[in-house]
């Protein structure tokens, strides 16, 4: 699918870019705080990407997604950016809504950080449009979440078979129904 393009007004875009660092920091914090407090502390503080892959996925994820929203949200790009975060959350101790709900935190964060300015500068309409793109992102995330869950079920169902069945079949130790339709 192509871009769900809806260019932001320059004014709102400027405002979002100006506050990018603060928004991202806050968004990151809220996401890692979905984990127990000891874990959140670790996710925030350990900077090595290999010692802390979840922290890194969240940090990169929120940055890239924010920039993608500013660019106009291409479904494929957004999917690729969401994938690492969702792939992890899809197996961790979260309900489906908790696993993808972090996307909507962005709305809260923006309102908190630049909500006043949005009102002062009469940018509410543009902001609602921006928010609906965040909703789109949530829907894309839901698709990825479902794909991850399906993948897990698929692996669960097939792993034993893949491991042993093909080895036994190659060795001729499994007798299969011949391709004769009369026998089916």
């Amino acid at each position: 699918m192509g871009a769900i393009r809806q260019l932001l007004s320059n004014d709102l875009e400027k405002l979002l870019i100006e506050s990018r660092a603060a928004i991202l920091q806050e968004w990151f914090t809220l996401v890692v705080e979905t984990y127990p407090s000891e874990t959140a502390r670790f996710l925030k503080s350990q900077k090595d990407p290999f010692a802390n892959p979840v922290g890194r996925a969240v940090r990169n994820g929120v940055e890239d997604l924010f920039d993608e929203l500013l660019r106009g949200l291409n479904r494929e790009h957004a999917g690729a950016l969401l994938d690492p975060m969702i792939r992890i959350r899809a197996i961790q101790n979260f309900t489906p809504s908790e696993a993808i709900g972090f996307i909507f935190f962005l709305k809260t964060v923006i309102r908190k950080i630049i909500g006043k300015k949005i009102l002062e500068r009469n940018l509410s309409q543009e902001f609602y449009a921006f928010e609906s793109k965040v909703d789109d992102l949530g829907l894309i995330a839901f698709d990825i979440y479902m794909k991850c869950r399906e993948k897990i079920y698929e692996i669960k169902a097939n792993e034993f078979r893949n491991r042993h069945y093909s080895a036994f079949r190659r060795a001729g130790l499994i007798s299969e129904v011949p391709d004769d339709p009369a026998l089916k």
Binding site: P36, S37, G101, T108, R111
Partner: peptide, 26 residues
């Protein structure tokens, strides 16, 4: 009309897990 409703007013989602010591987390 121009007042922005807070998202948490629209949907009540608790995103931070409760803080309990490990011995008290069943």
């Amino acid at each position: 009309a121009d007042e922005l409703p807070k998202p948490e007013e629209l949907i009540d989602v608790e995103h931070v897990p409760p803080i309990t010591g490990w011995m008290d987390t069943p």
